[in-house]
Simulated assay, not measured.
Amino acid sequence: MTDLKVLAVDDEPLAVERLQILLSKQPDVALAGTANDGESALQMVDELKPDLVLLDIAMPGMDGIDVARALSGRPHVPLVIFVTAFDNFAVAAFDVEAVDYLMKPVLPDRLARALERAREHPRRAPGPAAPAPRYVEEFWVPELHGLVRIGADQIERITAERDYMRLHVGNRSWLIHRTIAKLEEELDPALFVRVHRSVILRRDTIVGLHRDEAGHWNARLPDGAEQRIGRSYADNVRKMTGRG
């Protein structure tokens, strides 16, 4: 197995030193270099072409999220694992497709698991890459100390809240940073249907459709609740019944 070339980025010298020590104890890892700010990190990525960047988020000037976004447009795009003392960046980390999200102080076994995820990432896996799925199959959403996986087919309802979308699974829900238009494009229309400017439903949760006295269409849900169907979406919802 070839070594995983890693660039460690943190504005705190002691934090960089700790990462160096931790990485030195991991098998099949080569430290490509270190950087203390975002601009230097981008320059070193261009020069050293690491496989992976361990990237602090809360840095002055260009923070880790900005660095990750800037990397996506460069000729060489390494994988990113965020390292931070704060747990409120998980949504942003998901949006820039980070491989993992480590909380400080980083523990050796947790770092080992994150490095293994990087090794197994499709961009690192040997052999021909599998074709990317046409539609999103899973979401990694923030929890108290990290991220949790939610299969797209588990989601029952999606509601818009300003610049975020709330994914509802049973009596729990999670926020992700998306527009409803973007999310509608990413979801399989065989599984989901948009029924309102701010609501998407999983199709098999709709147990009935009816028109109220005012002429508005409503979707009846398994728990007896009803969801108003926006006029712009009524034809699309009726089409799924084969009677549109």
Rank of each mutant, 00 (worst) to 15 (best):
L22Q: 00
Y164Q: 08
V99T: 07
L183G: 13
A30F: 05
I81K: 03
R220I: 13
R119E: 05
L167C: 14
M44C: 03
E143L: 05
A68L: 05
Q26C: 15
E156C: 14
H210F: 10
V136R: 01
Q227M: 11
A132Q: 10
K5W: 07
A234F: 11
H145D: 11
F86K: 12
G64Q: 04
D163I: 08
L55I: 07
S24A: 14
S24K: 13
I21K: 04
A130C: 12
L175N: 05
S72C: 06
E185W: 00
M44K: 12
L52Y: 02
R172L: 15
F94C: 15
A129K: 04
V29E: 05
T34I: 06
G242H: 08
A114I: 00
Y101W: 07
V193Y: 00
V53S: 03
D46Q: 08
A98E: 02
D100Q: 13
T241W: 07
A118L: 12
E97W: 05
M62G: 05
I150Y: 04
V106Y: 00
L209N: 00
R123F: 10
E156N: 15
D95R: 14
R117E: 05
Y164D: 07
E185I: 02
A114P: 03
F192W: 01
A181E: 15
G33H: 00
D95S: 15
F192V: 00
Q154A: 14
M44Q: 12
D204Q: 12
V9L: 13
L102F: 04
W140M: 07
